[in-house]
């Protein structure tokens, strides 16, 4: 569903991504680990065509993102670390607006249903979102993704700064989406969450994918060890 082939991107001479090859299939939750600046956000931005690659391709559902940006975006849902919404609009209005931007429209009841599924308490849906906590915003972002019925999700540290309960609810929903066959790519710093919800784990360092693991085949302690080894100079095989 999501495929990067020799994907390259530089910013003013610095190579942020040095030929990334990766694939995320439907039913996968692929967790990208790595320090800040490893290229995780760059990868996600390339899949969204927010930036143009300097080499290689990013493809969604077999379509080249750079060539068919609008078609590929229709297949995607994106949840950043901070879901940004229009403060003077209510959650329902935000959801409806974003859905329509994505070319979908639902009844008021269905919109409420998406917000409920995303875990937003019923009474909040009609309030302006400038009064919302971060957790509530993330839920609206999730509802936007649900309403979009996306085949692939791009999540950029979506649970950073959420309390454990909210974070857990978020993971539960991801598992449901995975069960429905969505391909999920999630950049995260949360090793524990990666091990718990991820099916596959990729470790990025300085613009390269340096390791890929199957979440089921590695213990939490091992994962942490492997990760830290990579982060030290030379990496795991030095």
């Amino acid at each position: 569903m999501l495929q990067a082939t020799k994907l390259k991107k530089s910013y003013g001479g610095t190579e942020a991504l040095k030929g990334l090859d990766m694939t995320v299939e439907g039913g996968d939750i692929y967790c990208l680990l790595g320090a800040n600046g490893a290229g995780k956000t760059t990868t996600i931005s390339l899949f969204l065509n927010f930036i143009r690659p300097d080499g290689g391709t990013a493809a969604v559902g077999g379509l080249d993102v750079a060539e068919q940006p609008l078609e590929t975006k229709k297949l995607l849902a994106y949840i950043p670390e901070q879901v940004m919404l229009y403060g003077n609009l209510t959650a329902l209005e935000n959801l409806r607006y974003f859905s329509r931007l994505g070319g979908r429209d639902y009844s008021q009841g269905e919109y409420r249903g998406f917000l409920r599924r995303a875990g937003l308490q019923d009474g909040a849906a009609g309030r302006r979102v400038k009064t919302y906590s971060k957790g509530m915003r993330q839920k609206v972002g999730l509802a936007v993704a649900l309403a979009k019925q996306a085949k692939a999700l791009l999540l950029d540290e979506p649970t950073a700064g959420l309390d454990p309960k909210a974070s857990n609810e978020f993971s539960e929903l991801l598992l449901k989406l995975k069960a429905d066959g969505a391909a999920i790519l999630m950049a995260t710093h949360d090793l524990f969450r990666a091990k718990e919800t991820g099916t596959r784990i990729g470790i990025m360092k300085e613009g390269r994918l340096v390791d890929e693991l199957s979440a089921g085949e590695v213990s939490h302690a091992d994962l942490e060890k492997i990760y830290l080894q990579h982060m030290h100079v030379g990496g795991r095989y030095a």
């Binding site: 969204l48 609008l70 975006k73 950043p80 879901v83 940004m84 919404l85 229009y86 974003f98 931007l101």
Partner: peptide, 14 residues
């Protein structure tokens, strides 16, 4: 600046 443009453009609007 507020980041809603990212969100909006990710939806697939031209």
């Amino acid at each position: 600046e507020s980041g809603t443009l990212r969100q909006a453009l990710s939806m697939g609007v031209s």
